[in-house]
């Protein structure tokens, strides 16, 4: 299980790097689009959709890494009141709720992605982007989120990490 947790956090981190790269790429493409449009006076057709899809993908691919960093904000009013034992039980419950949601999203997104791939779905724009490519980020992201949550449930249950992390509020910003 130690090995599993290490492998999953490695995967989440990798996914986080990809997501950060997508955000940076989006910034570059927006600037490129403005240059093409304003300075060169040419058409800018694909950039708008490319940037939108990049950032949607960055969100779903970045979510597991942000979970690892405990960056998903939560309400910690009740946990703050509780003693260590009850806090651990509640921490487990919270992580299990998160896990169930991520697994459900993974299950429903698989069929949805498959339909887009098999049906050859495209956007209705001039660019005609193939939708299965950006859609892939949802099954991949939710799968990694689920795996990350399994690792977290295990770590909280065995007392390896404190429930709800060390920081009050979970996120610093």
């Amino acid at each position: 299980m130690e090995r599993y947790a290490a492998a999953v956090s490695w995967l989440s981190r990798l996914s986080g790097y990809v997501a950060a790269g997508l955000i940076l790429l989006a910034v570059l493409v927006v600037c490129q689009m403005l240059f093409v449009r304003y300075a060169l006076g040419q058409s800018a057709i694909w950039q708008n959709e490319f940037v939108t899809f990049s950032l949607v993908a960055a969100t779903f691919l970045g979510a597991p890494y942000v979970l690892l960093l405990r960056g998903h904000v939560n309400v910690e009013l009740v946990p703050l009141w509780l003693g260590p034992r009850a806090k651990r039980v509640l921490g487990l419950a919270a992580s299990l709720i998160g896990l169930v949601f991520c697994v459900l999203v993974f299950i429903t997104s698989i069929e949805w992605w498959w339909e887009a791939w098999a049906g050859g779905w495209e956007t209705s724009s001039v660019w005609r982007a193939r939708l299965w490519i950006p859609y892939l980020s949802l099954p991949v992201g939710s799968l990694l989120l689920s795996l990350q949550y399994v690792a977290e449930v295990w770590a909280i249950a065995t007392g390896r990490v404190p429930p709800f992390g060390a920081l009050p509020g979970g996120a610093e910003a």
């Binding site: 449009r37 006076g41 058409s43 800018a44 057709i45 708008n48 209705s124 724009s125 001039v126 005609r128």
Partner: peptide
């Protein structure tokens, strides 16, 4: 040379064909 925003792909292609530059917003 006009910067044009079009409601649909087919119109965008025609605008571009007539020499406008297409923006997508």
């Amino acid at each position: 040379g006009l910067k044009a925003r079009s409601a649909g792909a087919t119109f965008a292609e025609m605008w571009a064909g007539a020499g406008a530059s297409i923006i997508n917003i």
